[in-house]
């Protein structure tokens, strides 16, 4: 990613995430989440992970935004906003500790663009054999496809991808059945 974009884009991502949290109107929060997903997809694309960015745009910006709006309109609000003020400092302490733990863990990650990170070496840090180095060395020989990610997803893990397709088809069918117009049934019930 370019260093200039690397500074400005996360700033906007943080702004939209904050908007989605603090917005009192639920529809505002839903639209802010859509914008968040679009900017997140842009960040993925600018890092070169085009497929991940595309998935984020389809699922986050397209489907989830529409579904959240549909759910807001289909359901009724029966409770009031009332925050539980007990253990306020304890909750804040737990969240801060978890954030500190995540930041501490992220310091051990390899630098982005590193050609020789520990997980791509033939032998991992604890002495076992790494799968990633096998994929890097043999992906082209096994499948004759230039893109390594495609080989792993569609060839080595082909059955896994088939299962994912079935899950996505089931989810799409369920959404279609839930959201279709139920005009005739309503007429009969009346």
């Amino acid at each position: 990613m370019q260093p200039e974009l690397e500074i400005t884009l996360p700033f906007f991502i943080l702004i939209t995430a904050w908007l989605a949290i603090v917005a009192k109107n639920l529809l505002t929060a839903a639209v802010a989440l859509t914008v968040f997903s679009f900017l997140m997809a842009l960040a993925f694309v600018s890092m070169g992970a085009v497929d991940v960015g595309f998935t984020e745009a389809v699922v986050g910006a397209g489907v989830t935004g529409v579904f959240i709006i549909v759910v807001i309109f289909k359901t009724a609000r029966r409770t009031q906003d009332r925050s539980d003020m007990r253990f306020k400092y304890l909750k804040g302490l737990a969240i801060a500790a978890f954030g500190a733990l995540l930041i501490y863990g992220s310091t051990a990650l390899p630098i982005r663009g590193d050609a020789d990170p520990p997980m791509n070496r033939p032998i991992s840090l604890i002495g076992s054999v790494n799968a990633a180095s096998y994929y890097i060395q043999n992906a082209y020989k096994d499948a004759e496809t230039p893109n390594m990610v495609t080989v792993i997803l569609a060839d080595y893990r082909g059955y896994d991808t088939l299962g994912e397709v079935i899950v996505i088809l089931a989810a799409g069918l369920i959404c279609f059945l839930l959201l279709r117009k139920q005009g005739r049934q309503r007429e009969i019930q009346r």
Partner: peptide
């Protein structure tokens, strides 16, 4: 990227 602030304001206030 900075110009995105303008529609973002509309998303928040709108």
């Amino acid at each position: 990227t900075i110009i995105i602030l303008i529609p973002l304001y509309r998303v928040y206030i709108g």
